[in-house]
């Protein structure tokens, strides 16, 4: 009997809860170990960025208004779905050139990281909010609210745990986002979109694009409807360009050092709080 011919996967993007190909109609080749051709990834364009930002803006008001408990449930659901597809991700990482042991560790860490942040959704406001004892007859309180639309630029080298470590706290805090997958290793991040899609995450909360970073970073970071940028590309000229683009509409920028993303240091509430605005409300007390 002849060997069965494998079915290859067409890697697309994840935008607005759908999996469209790039509007550009263009792709680029993604290679794995020993320069083996793995796939043709979408080479996204300016228009894809605009569509993705639009999708995240459309999703923002619903996502931020969902109860914190509900957001936690959905993040937990993502872990469950990821657990179920563990082997698929391990295999995808191995193909991309990572050792089997390392791949397993990375997928396990990714699953646990979603659970970790799932547990924060209904707690960080209690720790990082405050009741302020003002010196007048007012009841005054402050609480964190999501900042809005995030541009997320995960590290070029980390295939899965880097993107997960940035997506989880961002959406745990009620933000929506557009993420640029690694240019050379985009496949696991693109596949992650499929997991998010079956986890009851509302359409548009997370949008994932692939392509040439030097084409996409300037467009995404200068988009006037993006509120904040989380970047982990450490090249000085890229960081400077991002900072300058941020100044167009006072985007908040966090540059995260590229390091060991498996390290549990990445599990902390400050990665949620860094993309929160503090809202303070004054209310008079009296008869």
């Amino acid at each position: 009997m002849a060997d069965r011919v494998d079915v290859l996967k067409t890697y697309k993007t994840y935008v607005g809860g759908a999996f469209p190909r790039s509007e550009s109609g263009r792709t680029y080749k993604v290679y794995g170990k020993n320069d083996q051709l793995l796939a043709n990834a979408c080479r996204c364009s300016r228009k894809d960025i605009r569509d993705a930002v639009e999708a995240s803006r459309a999703a923002f008001s619903g996502w931020k208004s969902l109860s914190a408990h509900h957001r936690g449930q959905i993040l937990y659901r993502i872990s469950e779905m990821l657990e179920g597809r563990k082997e698929q991700f391990v295999e995808e990482l191995i193909k991309s050139g990572i050792s089997k042991k390392q791949s397993r560790m990375e997928v396990d860490a990714a699953i646990d990281r979603f659970i970790y942040f799932a547990g924060w959704t209904d707690k960080y406001a209690q720790i990082y909010g405050s009741i302020n004892p003002v010196a007048s007859d007012h009841f005054n309180f402050s609480y964190p609210e999501p900042i809005g639309i995030l541009a997320v630029i995960p590290p070029e080298t980390s295939r899965l745990i880097g993107p997960v470590s940035m997506i989880a706290p961002a959406i745990a805090g009620g933000n929506t986002l557009v993420m640029l997958a690694s240019q050379t290793h985009p496949l696991a991040a693109i596949t992650l979109g499929e997991v998010l899609h079956v986890s009851d995450l509302p359409a548009g909360v997370v949008n994932i694009l692939s392509g040439y970073r030097d084409e996409l970073i300037p467009v995404l970071t200068s988009h006037m409807d993006v509120n904040a940028i989380w970047n982990s590309v450490e090249k000085q000229e890229v960081m400077k360009q991002i900072d300058e683009n941020a100044a167009l509409n006072i985007k908040r920028v966090v540059h995260t050092e590229q390091d060991d993303w498996l390290d549990p240091r990445h599990e902390n509430p400050y990665s949620i709080v860094q993309f929160q605005e503090i809202k303070t409300t004054w209310h008079p007390s009296g008869y």
Binding site: N132, P133, V134, S136, N140, I278, T280, W282, H283, P284
Partner: peptide, 13 residues
Amino acid sequence: WSNTFNKFDPTSP
């Protein structure tokens, strides 16, 4: 500011 406006206090962010 709810039913008030332009109030400030050192404890209030």
